[in-house]
């Protein structure tokens, strides 16, 4: 399955191995894993999402990435619910004939997932909880992929 959204934990190593095994001859595979940071005493993270829209939005990004970068295969995993510091949150895997396309596609997907997939993170620490604010730089990262910059 290309897009997997759910509360279940996953093993990044096993996911990467399975992905590589399924794309024989692709030439280049890139993976990115996002992990719950443990700095500032952060204990856990609650991730809320918009069921239905989440899957559709990610599927749209995956389609764009596949065509734009000529991907052989692509997979996006994203968890929701309560995650402890150190746990993997999400993973992007891309396979292409050559490395540049695989790197760029993973970068593109990360930028879109940050700002255009309906997830919201809440940080839980000793002092209470707080919603994570979106960063201006995340929107600026998205601008890099505008058609006139390509």
């Amino acid at each position: 399955m290309e897009v997997r959204v759910g509360p279940e934990a996953f093993d990044p190593g096993a996911e990467l191995s399975a992905f590589v095994a399924g794309v024989a001859g692709a030439g280049a595979v890139v993976s990115f894993t996002g992990v719950v940071r443990g700095d500032g005493g952060l204990e856990a993270m609650e991730i809320e999402h918009y069921p239905g829209m989440t899957e559709a939005a990610i599927a749209g990004m995956v389609d764009q990435a596949r065509h734009r970068f000529g991907l052989v295969a692509v997979r996006v995993l994203h968890r929701h619910g309560r995650l402890a510091a150190g746990e993997p949150i999400m993973m992007v895997l891309t396979a292409a004939p050559h490395r540049r396309a695989a790197f760029d596609a993973a970068d593109f997907l990360m930028d879109y997932l940050k700002s255009r997939a309906p997830f919201w993170k809440k940080e839980l620490g000793p002092g209470g909880s707080a919603w994570v604010a979106a960063k201006d730089e995340d929107e600026e990262s998205l601008d890099r992929w505008a058609p006139d910059r390509a």
Partner: peptide, 24 residues
């Protein structure tokens, strides 16, 4: 689907409000 505040609601069944997304 992401929309603007000026978007028409003609025939709309579901409208969602939320802060800027923080996925990834």
């Amino acid at each position: 689907k992401l929309a603007s505040f000026e978007a028409p609601l003609d025939g709309a069944r579901e409208v969602a409000f939320f802060p800027p997304m923080t996925g990834g």
